[in-house]
Amino acid sequence: MTDTSLSAPDSANGAMDDSDFAEIPETLHENGLWRDGGWTARVIKNEDDDGWAVEMIKDGEPEPALVGPWTMGRNKKDPKPLDAAAFNTLVKTASEVLRRHEQQLRAQLHKRVTVAAATGDGEWEVTLDIVPDEDEPYALLTALDAFGEPLAQVQVAANFKLSRASAASWVENGFARPSN
């Protein structure tokens, strides 16, 4: 399906709400709006200048994963139409942005150190997994043996600082809940 007009949302600020997306079919290929494979690309007016931007929204997400500048058309006034190649590139870029964001979040919420086993036979891994609950965030401190089997686990404050020293102290104290 190809349309030569640029699709624009009804709202004055250019934002689409859930009802706008509910009306868009699962697959749609228009000059300023493409929806396919769980992604929506929409050309919007760039709020920072006189140009255009494109936003990529993953189905089910409230915010765009990617917003970037979009090329002007030949008349230097209207945006260049979306096409399959541009859409595929945008999907790839937006997917990479989401993947990196997930990796960064995982790194912030999951820490891991290795300490000497209390028995003197090898090493144990100690992990700290932060549970970012809005009301009462907390973290789980876990000791794992050489085979990845849990030896002990305690709940600690979300701001607990995991280091080799704090992990070793926890192990030396028989896995008693650390004071901080």
Results as ranks from 00 to 15, higher is better:
1 M>Q: 06
2 T>P: 02
6 L>V: 03
7 S>R: 05
8 A>R: 14
8 A>F: 10
9 P>Q: 00
10 D>G: 14
14 G>Q: 03
16 M>L: 11
18 D>K: 12
19 S>E: 13
22 A>T: 10
22 A>I: 08
23 E>I: 04
26 E>V: 06
26 E>S: 06
34 W>Q: 04
34 W>R: 04
37 G>K: 01
39 W>K: 02
39 W>I: 01
40 T>W: 00
41 A>N: 05
47 E>N: 08
47 E>L: 07
47 E>Y: 09
49 D>I: 07
49 D>S: 06
50 D>G: 15
52 W>Y: 11
53 A>S: 13
54 V>K: 05
56 M>I: 01
56 M>R: 06
57 I>H: 03
57 I>M: 01
58 K>I: 01
59 D>F: 09
60 G>N: 07
60 G>P: 11
61 E>V: 04
61 E>N: 05
62 P>C: 06
63 E>P: 06
64 P>I: 06
64 P>A: 13
65 A>R: 01
67 V>G: 00
67 V>Y: 03
69 P>H: 10
71 T>H: 10
71 T>Y: 00
73 G>Y: 07
76 K>F: 09
76 K>Q: 09
76 K>G: 02
77 K>T: 12
78 D>E: 11
79 P>Q: 01
83 D>F: 01
84 A>G: 00
86 A>G: 06
86 A>Q: 03
87 F>N: 00
89 T>K: 14
90 L>G: 07
91 V>K: 02
92 K>T: 07
94 A>C: 03
94 A>N: 05
96 E>K: 15
97 V>N: 04
102 E>V: 04
102 E>Y: 00
105 L>K: 13
107 A>D: 14
107 A>M: 04
108 Q>F: 13
108 Q>L: 15
108 Q>D: 15
109 L>M: 15
109 L>F: 12
110 H>G: 05
110 H>E: 14
113 V>G: 09
114 T>Q: 11
114 T>A: 09
118 A>Y: 01
123 E>K: 08
123 E>G: 03
124 W>F: 08
125 E>A: 11
125 E>Q: 13
126 V>N: 07
126 V>E: 07
126 V>H: 08
127 T>A: 07
129 D>G: 12
129 D>E: 15
132 P>Y: 14
132 P>N: 15
135 D>I: 07
137 P>F: 12
139 A>S: 15
141 L>S: 12
142 T>M: 13
143 A>C: 12
145 D>N: 15
147 F>I: 02
147 F>G: 00
149 E>W: 04
150 P>Y: 05
151 L>K: 13
153 Q>L: 11
155 Q>P: 01
156 V>N: 08
158 A>L: 10
159 N>V: 07
161 K>R: 10
162 L>C: 09
163 S>R: 08
164 R>P: 08
164 R>T: 12
166 S>Q: 11
167 A>Y: 05
167 A>P: 06
168 A>N: 10
170 W>V: 05
171 V>K: 00
172 E>Y: 11
172 E>H: 12
173 N>T: 13
173 N>P: 03
174 G>I: 06
176 A>F: 07
178 P>V: 09
179 S>E: 15
